Amino acid sequence: MKTFAPSYLKHQFLIAMPHMADPNFAHTLTYIVEHNANGAMGLVVNRPQELNLGDILEQLRPDETPPASTLQVPIYLGGPVQTDRGFVLHSDECSFQATVALEGLSLTTSQDVLLAIAAGVGPKKSLITLGYAGWEAGQLEAELADNAWLNCPFDPAILFAMDSEQRLGAAAKSLGINLSLLTSQAGHA
């Protein structure tokens, strides 16, 4: 009998298929931070909220007026779990109190990265989310088998050099797929 190691999707993008019914994930592009036998964790990277970094800093430090530049820094809805908790995906040239290295990328969950970005001394490239997406053991694999998602290699240009509304289509295009040509009936023949 042949045994094979499961293929995990850490450091890849997940593309929601057009027929994705879950409103938390319809039309989303998710970066997979961790995926192993215990489950998976990811951050939705194409769903900006009404909030900006200035709003967050006002909550963290009500006595200080945040720099005007922070009003231009969007905050993304990273997923439906712990929506009050911040996660910053960023370029890996600097590290903070709670930073994890991810193959040319870093993830920081401590507030010092937000203060550094506000002060203009943070990472060169960053994307800030509130909340994350989580899957139990085997759940993401089952959803992939059910054609809920496509996965593709991570591309920093998609994450950091494109407007949020272009990211999903660009990730699909990297696989040679035009999502608008896929109908919601896919996989139901």
Rank of each mutant, 00 (worst) to 15 (best):
H35D: 10
L105N: 02
N36S: 10
E141K: 14
F96N: 04
S69F: 02
M162W: 04
T99W: 06
G120E: 05
H19S: 05
R47F: 07
G39E: 07
L168V: 07
V81A: 09
V45M: 04
Q97C: 09
N151K: 00
L89V: 10
R167N: 04
Q97G: 08
P48Y: 03
L150Y: 11
E103F: 03
D84N: 14
Y76K: 07
L43E: 02
P80T: 10
W135S: 08
Q97M: 14
L115A: 05
T183W: 00
Q111F: 08
F25C: 12
K10H: 08
A142D: 11
E141W: 02
V113Y: 03
L77K: 10
L57C: 05
I128M: 07
N147Q: 04
M20N: 04
D163G: 09
Q111A: 15
L51W: 11
A145L: 15
E143V: 01
S174Y: 01
F96A: 09
S95G: 00
L14K: 10
I75H: 06
C94D: 03
I158H: 12
T129G: 07
L43I: 14
S184R: 15
P153I: 05
D22V: 06
R167E: 01
H19D: 00
A145R: 12
S180V: 07
P156H: 11
I75S: 01
E143A: 04
L127H: 11
Q166D: 13
A189D: 14
I56C: 06
L182A: 07
T3S: 15
M17S: 11
T129S: 15
L175H: 02
H90P: 11
T83Y: 01
M17A: 15
V44G: 08
G120N: 02
Y76I: 09
S126N: 15
A98M: 14
E143N: 03
G187Q: 00
E50N: 13
Q72E: 15
L43W: 00
G54E: 06
L9A: 03
R167I: 10
L60P: 11
H19Y: 06
S69K: 05
L168R: 12
A5T: 15
A133W: 09
D92I: 03
A21H: 12
A37N: 10
Q97I: 11
P80K: 08
I117R: 00
G122L: 11
G79R: 13
G78S: 04
L57M: 02
T70W: 01
L130Y: 03
G42D: 02
Q82D: 15
A133L: 09
A98D: 15
A157T: 14
S174D: 03
K125R: 14
Q166S: 13
H188D: 14
C94H: 04
G169T: 09
Q82I: 01
L71T: 15
T108Y: 07
F4C: 02
L14Q: 07
R167G: 00
Q139A: 08
S174E: 02
V100H: 08
E50W: 00
G122D: 14
L53N: 02
P74F: 04
W149Q: 06
L168K: 09
P80Q: 09
G86T: 13
P23Q: 12
G120V: 05
G122F: 13
